[in-house]
Amino acid sequence: MFEARLVQGSLLKKILEATKDLLTEATFDCSSTGMSLQAMDSSHVSLVSLMLRSDGFDAYRCDRNLSMGINLTSMTKIIKCSSNDDVVTIKADDNNPDTVTFMFESPNQEKVSDFEMKLMDLDTEHLGIPETDYSVVVKMPAQEFQRVCRDMSQIGESVTICCTKDGIRFSASGDLGTGNIKIAQSANVDKEEEAVVIEMQEAVTLTFALRYLNFFTRATSLSGQVSLSMSPEVPLVVEYKIADMGYMRYYLAPKIED
């Protein structure tokens, strides 16, 4: 028996929005620790890693480990049938292993819906992600990062991110010319969410495909802040924390000079 109840049901809408450009199907792994998902996009350039810890749910029961192969397009259709203030419960029954049920309850309990969705048999490839001490970790407002990625993609297909202790510089070039955006580390901020904080061991310069960074910024509604972890010649980690529950992380391989 698996049952996970989320009072803040709209969180699932945000999570699906945050994966829609990268994944069409994925396996949700459920265990006593929580629900997780790890999947690469079809071109093997990026990886999505979601963690929702069991203690972040309003009720959680998972008697035995369960892997649910889910068509995310179908799940999105079903989750769209919920209202933003609905309580969502995800249920899977051991006697009926080919389906998952989503139950939506209005806050006053006057409307209760349930949708049963067919599960898929997916060949899941799991990647082992090594523990890495990153040379640079930048925390910045998620909306600012979204804006930078959007603006840079007006100029070119790639962005070069150069991070020093003074700040982070995003540069792009293309047929129309070049663009640079430099964001300094915050001197002092009243609100933690508005801060730009740089933790640095050594300066790093890396180039990434803007197409993917823009896909990652679909997660902006999940968190006020985003963190970018970088080391020379290894994939970038873009992390959006999901308050009291876990995270949505994206890994993107850097571009290299041919």
Partner: peptide
């Protein structure tokens, strides 16, 4: 022009 790396070159399948 820079070339896109494959993620699997960094993270092995487990």
């Amino acid at each position: 022009t820079p070339v896109q790396n494959d993620l699997q070159e960094f993270f092995a399948l487990v």
